[in-house]
Amino acid sequence: MAETAAPIAEPELEMNHNEHLVETTEVPAEAHHAEPSALGLAPAGWVGLSMLAFLLILVWKKVPAVITGGLDKKIVEIRQHLDEAKKLRAEAEALRKEYADKIAGAEKDAAAMIEYARHEADAIVAKAEADTEAVIKRRKQMAEDKIAAAQRGAVEELRARAADAAATAARGLIAKGHDAEADKKLVDTAISGL
């Protein structure tokens, strides 16, 4: 399929303003370039033929099998990774549930401990109040006993002083009102009463 090319026009020489020769070529509107061909094939045919040869070499060297084998290996590897990820996820879920249960148990234990501590604190406060009341009663009783003992001591001391004062006063009165003769009479009366 050889095409005939339209004749190319000869260049004409013209003078422009600057007095230089300028070469102009007139190309007719219908003219186009001829495509090169080799062995009867145009460039597009050679490209197609080379692609066909390339694909045949790829098939002959079993490249598609190598590619599909590589892809199959990748698919198997990805499946293994997915299975491992599923296993890890299941383990993580189990651990999460276990820790959630432990947290719930710890919260119950903490609530029980708080309740026990509150009960113990109430018992300690009640015992302290009872002990305080007992101590107050004992100290009050001791103070009352001391006061009573002090009163008794004061009364006894007052009585002893009063007795001493009365004896002293009686001696003084007796000494004033009795003389030796009156004493003699008293001693005689006492002796005769025996």
Results as ranks from 00 to 15, higher is better:
Glu93Met: 06
Ala106Ser: 14
Ala110Arg: 11
Lys102Cys: 05
Asp72Val: 02
Lys108His: 03
Gly69Thr: 03
Lys62Met: 07
Ala128Cys: 11
Tyr99Phe: 04
Lys102Asn: 08
Ala134Val: 15
Gly70Cys: 07
Leu49Glu: 10
Ile136Gly: 00
Ile103Tyr: 04
Ala123Gly: 08
Arg138Phe: 09
Lys87Asn: 01
His33Pro: 13
Gly105Glu: 04
Ala90Lys: 13
Val47Arg: 15
Ala130Lys: 15
Ala90Asp: 12
Met51Cys: 09
His81Trp: 09
Leu88Phe: 04
Ile103Gln: 10
Ala42Arg: 05
Ala53Trp: 11
Ile57Phe: 00
Val76Ala: 14
Val63Trp: 11
Gly40Arg: 02
Val47Pro: 06
Ala112Thr: 04
Glu35Gln: 12
Gly69Ser: 09
Gln80His: 14
Leu52Thr: 07
Thr68Asn: 06
Arg118Tyr: 01
Glu115Ala: 10
Glu35Tyr: 07
Val47Trp: 13
Val63Pro: 02
Thr68Ile: 07
Ile67Asp: 13
Ala121Tyr: 13
Arg89Asn: 15
Ile124Arg: 01
Thr132Phe: 09
Asp109Tyr: 08
Leu52Pro: 02
Glu35Ala: 11
Ala130His: 11
Leu41Trp: 01
Ala112Leu: 09
Leu56Asp: 04
Arg96Lys: 08
Ala85Glu: 14
Val135Arg: 01
Leu41Pro: 00
Met142Gln: 13
Ala111Met: 07
Asp83Cys: 06
Glu133Trp: 05
Val135Leu: 02
Ala42Val: 03
Ser50Gln: 13
Met51Ala: 10
Glu35Asp: 12
Glu91Trp: 00
Gly45Ser: 06
Met113Thr: 13
Asp83Arg: 03
Asp131Arg: 09
Ala117Leu: 12
Thr132His: 09
Val125Phe: 04
Ala90Val: 12
Tyr116Gln: 15
Arg89Glu: 15
Lys62Asp: 11
Ala34Ser: 09
Asp83Pro: 02
Met51Tyr: 06
Lys102Thr: 06
Trp60Glu: 08
Val47Asn: 13
Tyr99Glu: 02
Val125Tyr: 04
Met51Ser: 10
Gly45His: 03
Ala134Arg: 15
Met113Asp: 12
Gln141Glu: 11
His81Cys: 04
Ala90Trp: 07
Thr132Ile: 09
Ala110Pro: 01
Leu95Lys: 13
Asp131Thr: 12
Ile114Glu: 12
Glu91Asp: 05
